[in-house]
């Protein structure tokens, strides 16, 4: 078992009423570098730890977006600048952006699923010559839940096609209304030469991945991030099994080709 390395909270940004983004800096020795798609076990002193995907890596600094749901995430969400958070990791597979070299990119996020995908967007923007067109499709419940709202314009300016839709518009919303898959018709990509990265609730992942395959994407080029309970992060506790996979080790990012048959089995 690894032990948590203390990291100091450098900044805390409120993203939505129950969502905050923490930028963390090592208080002692830094952990090995994280790749986009990998996760950390974030530890709140005396409360416990939960898996949280990294949503930006900047040198030894780690950024994590946390939604307050239970005791641990509420404690982490409530961390103050200057406070200490424990970090174990990096764990799991990454998004594998390298495998998408030269292809069009579809980054498709539902809800807080944009957090694990943000480093894909940032990495793709940082090296535009490595791939084709970058599309970022985002679905949220209400306009106030949209993450990184202050950044998305900058993503557009740097060449990404960013399309955003909400389930429930408010009076001030003048953007799209509908599920994220309806944005696919307006994304710029050549299906036979595209890699998709999908993250969101499992139902959204299934519907999106099927739609992508219908539109001509190879199931091997649809990469999805799956969710199961994780306690240890190191493949020893057995909780995150999905059939043959230990998701903390063999996931959370897997191809739709691998995931499809597993997600068809109920209660697997």
């Amino acid at each position: 078992m690894t032990t948590p390395a203390p990291y100091r909270v450098v900044t805390r940004t409120v993203e939505a009423p129950d969502v905050a983004t923490l930028v963390l800096e090592p208080a002692g020795d830094p952990l090995p570098p994280f790749s986009p798609g990998q996760f950390a076990m974030l530890y709140a002193f005396g409360v416990g730890d939960i898996p949280v995907s990294v949503c930006a890596v900047d040198g030894h600094r780690l950024t994590h977006t946390i939604r307050a749901v239970g005791a641990v995430s509420s404690a982490l969400h409530g961390s103050r600048t200057g406070g200490t958070v424990g970090v174990r990791g990096p764990f799991g597979t990454g998004w594998g952006l390298d495998h998408a070299a030269g292809r069009d990119l579809l980054v498709i996020a539902g809800g807080i699923g944009l957090a694990p995908l943000r480093p894909v967007v940032l990495a793709a923007l940082a090296a535009p010559e490595r791939h084709g067109r970058l599309n970022v499709l985002v679905g949220a419940r209400v306009p106030g839940d949209l993450l990184y709202a202050s950044e998305t314009d900058a993503w557009r300016e740097r060449g990404a096609r960013v399309l955003v839709t909400v389930d429930r518009p408010d009076a001030r919303w003048n953007g799209d209304v509908g599920v994220v898959t309806t944005l696919l018709g307006r994304a710029a990509f050549t299906p036979s030469d595209t890699t998709a990265f999908v993250c969101g609730p499992e139902v959204m992942i299934r519907a999106t991945a099927r739609d992508l395959v219908d539109r001509g994407l190879d199931a091997d080029r649809v990469r999805v991030s799956l969710e199961r309970t994780m306690h240890c992060g190191v493949g020893h506790c057995g909780h995150c099994q999905l059939g043959p996979l230990l998701l903390c080790r063999d996931g959370p990012v897997v191809t739709w080709a691998e995931a499809r048959s597993l997600l068809r089995v109920r209660e697997l």
Binding site: A5, A27, R80, G83, T84
Partner: peptide, 12 residues
Amino acid sequence: DTDSREAWVVVP
């Protein structure tokens, strides 16, 4: 000093 109040160390 918030830092020192909230800091902790792990003793493996």
